[in-house]
Nucleic acid binder design. Structure first.
Lengths: 215, 215
DNA sequence: TCGTACCGACCGACCGGTCGGTTTGTTCTA
DNA sequence: TAGAACAAACCGACCGGTCGGTCGGTACGA
């Protein structure tokens, strides 16, 4: 019975994936609340019953979607920072900023779903969205801690600083998401990076040198 | 006939006010989407029909609520800044930061409704919330422009800086709203103020002197 | 022929908004 | 000043529609 299911499991996996993809599209387009399960079914070329065979509830679809997407995001930032040739902590922090912006810039609808829609889809998803914020903040915080430990920047409340950094990035992305204007994100991103580095006491020459080499 | 209406108008005004208060409570508790008009009616000790006598739609209640609240908020910040004894633009910008934090700290549930519930509860609410963001950003931006004009800080992209400032403030408040922890807001606010001022190139001595005098 | 995967008609709950009717309060008249 | 006349304010049952979730049935591979 179990081995008989093996090819089925692969088919099942693909089916789930297709439903998740469809749900992602529909959620991005309509927002979670206004997205009907029937819409997802149509997009996934299946039926409502088919969806409820694979998922226990509409809610669970969003949860799985957000969870896996968040994992991918944080992983991407970490990898981008590790790829940074310089081991200098300031350069790493700068790379993290660039990575966050680049990822969101490259996945506009995903950003919309994760940053904007997540908050409005009820109390549960708000918690989930804020957990995502926390993960990013913790990530940034760890880079700042490293910079403090190496003496690259003066000691400071890295938790507050990381919160401020993420908030600033977040707001910039939100503005970009909402604007009809296509892509000033890269441009304003450079200005933002300078300000954020300055805010934690990185010397002016260091910022200028990063600006020259980094981009 | 017109003067005879005066007492009625007063009664009407009070009734509207009571409905708005009730709506505010219910929206804060449940979020806009999950709040039924019947809930608001119950809380306002009136009926659904009574509400629809005073307002054309559920949507319009929210619009009026957010509009007037935003007016009050922006006005409060402006007044706080104008009350600031120093005419120095850096001190004014610092005062604006303090004012924003103090206002949110003093009106927790209002902040919740405006900052957290706002983004997700449907396209309309989102638009309205982001308009509030824009108003604050424009306000901050004007203070920064003043500081640049007076040469107190080096020239920079004040729109991006204001966005970053507001985003940082926003994220800090969000964290405070969500945490079970009661009130680290004032404390972390001081740290944040220093960082934000530093981010736009305010000299270190100036920040230290503000820290000493301002609080 | 057995069970997994899937379908789609259907259910029940909910919700914003409407509407006919009732209450409340003010003005006019005698 | 009594009370008729009128209108504004208010009530709550109801409606049209939507949507998440269910369930009886079917197709098909093993």
């Amino acid at each position: 019975m179990d081995n008989a299911r093996t090819p089925n499991d692969e088919r099942t996996r693909r089916r789930r994936e297709r439903i998740l993809d469809a749900a992602f599209h529909v959620f991005s387009r309509t927002g979670y609340r206004d997205a009907a399960v029937d819409d997802i079914a149509r997009e996934a070329e299946t039926s409502k019953g088919g969806i409820y065979f694979h998922f226990p509830s509409k809610e669970s679809i969003l949860m799985e979607l957000m969870g896996s997407t968040a994992d991918r995001l944080v992983g991407k930032v970490q990898r981008a920072v590790e790829l940074e040739p310089a081991t200098d902590p300031v350069a790493r922090a700068g790379a993290a900023i660039d990575a966050v912006l680049a990822i969101f810039a490259g996945h506009r609808s995903m950003a919309r779903l994760l940053l904007v829609d997540g908050l409005g889809a009820g109390a549960l998803f708000r918690t989930e969205t804020l957990r995502l914020h926390d993960r990013f903040i913790a990530l940034i915080s760890s880079y700042l801690d490293g910079a403090v430990a190496e003496g690259a920047i003066p000691p400071l409340d890295t938790k507050v600083a990381a919160t401020a950094w993420f908030g600033a990035l977040h707001e910039l992305v939100i503005g970009w998401l909402v604007a009809a204007d296509p892509a000033p994100l890269e441009h304003s991103g450079v200005a933002l990076r300078g300000m954020l580095l300055r805010s934690v006491g990185v010397p002016e020459e260091r910022i200028a040198s990063l600006e020259a080499s980094g981009r």
